[in-house]
């Protein structure tokens, strides 16, 4: 192949991409090389870690589901409606993304000590509960899901919805019958991102829901608990297990998404 300027440009861009992927491969390779067969067996046999795995799968799925339920209407509103102060609201929706995770946990903890928070806790207890794990995952994951849904609706023409309005739809019916079916791949992507984000969530969960074994312990908490007692091999094995789990679930969900 003749190396003209255009080809050189692609070559440089490809090198940057490959370098980044190689860097990640080296990171994961080094981590994998550190773990032993015994530590993997220990992870698989440990009832605490099995419980943490189960709880992670359940809470991540719930948090991602709730995040999607919020992200669809918010994303649609922010895309289709022009109003004063929209840029401020847009910035406000990104706050959970830019806040340090520990601060999010602290905010949750303090909120549930206020009068409103206590009233809510009388109906559904959150602090140091499994529901608190879901809430801590949800508040951060929702911001990412909203970004994804907003991007999805921005890429979809509003024209079919306009036509639906002239054919007899209310705005809600246009959203339900036209926009949502067209946005289904974006919804799968938003769910995936929210799920992956929830799986990696640690700071807010530790502060707000605690790290009680067999109760509010999720996989990132396990890594921290194992590290804190000097069990590096188990921490590494759990970390790799999380990587494997995340890849498996995301591949499965994405494969489903390709079919919808």
């Amino acid at each position: 192949m003749h190396l003209n300027r255009s080809n050189l440009c692609w070559l440089v861009l490809a090198l940057i991409t490959v370098s980044y992927l190689v860097f990640w491969a080296l990171l994961l390779g080094a981590t994998a090389a550190y773990s032993t067969q015994d530590s993997w067996l220990q992870v698989l046999r440990s009832p605490e870690i099995r419980h943490a795995t189960f709880l992670s799968l359940v809470t991540c799925s719930l948090a991602a589901g709730f995040a999607l339920l919020l992200a669809v209407p918010v994303g649609y509103l922010m895309t289709r409606l022009e109003f004063r102060g929209k840029s401020w609201l847009d910035a406000a929706l990104d706050i959970p993304i830019i806040l340090p995770p520990l601060v999010v946990g602290l905010c949750l903890l303090i909120f549930f000590q206020t009068k409103i928070g206590k009233v809510i806790e009388m109906a559904v207890p959150f602090t140091y509960q499994v529901s608190g794990v879901v809430l801590a995952q949800f508040v951060v994951a929702a911001a990412f899901a909203i970004r994804t849904m907003r991007g999805t609706f921005q890429h979809l023409s509003a024209r079919p919805e306009d036509v639906a309005l002239t054919l007899g739809c209310t705005r809600f019916q246009a959203l339900w019958h036209v926009a949502l079916p067209a946005a289904r791949r974006g919804m799968v992507a938003a769910f995936c991102i929210a799920w992956a984000r929830s799986l990696g969530e640690f700071g807010p969960i530790l502060v707000f829901a605690g790290a009680t074994r067999m109760k509010t312990e999720v996989l990132p908490t396990t890594v921290w608990l194992e590290l804190s007692v000097g069990n590096l091999e188990a921490a590494v094995a759990v970390s790799l297990f999380m990587v494997l789990l995340a890849v498996l679930v995301l591949v499965a969900v994405r494969a489903t998404g390709e079919k919808v």
């Binding site: 023409s157 024209r159 079919p160 036509v163 002239t166 019958h177 079916p181 067209a182």
Partner: peptide
């Protein structure tokens, strides 16, 4: 209303 891009409903 038939817009320029026809706007058929995807799916």
């Amino acid at each position: 209303y038939v817009p320029q891009d026809l706007a058929l409903f995807p799916g």
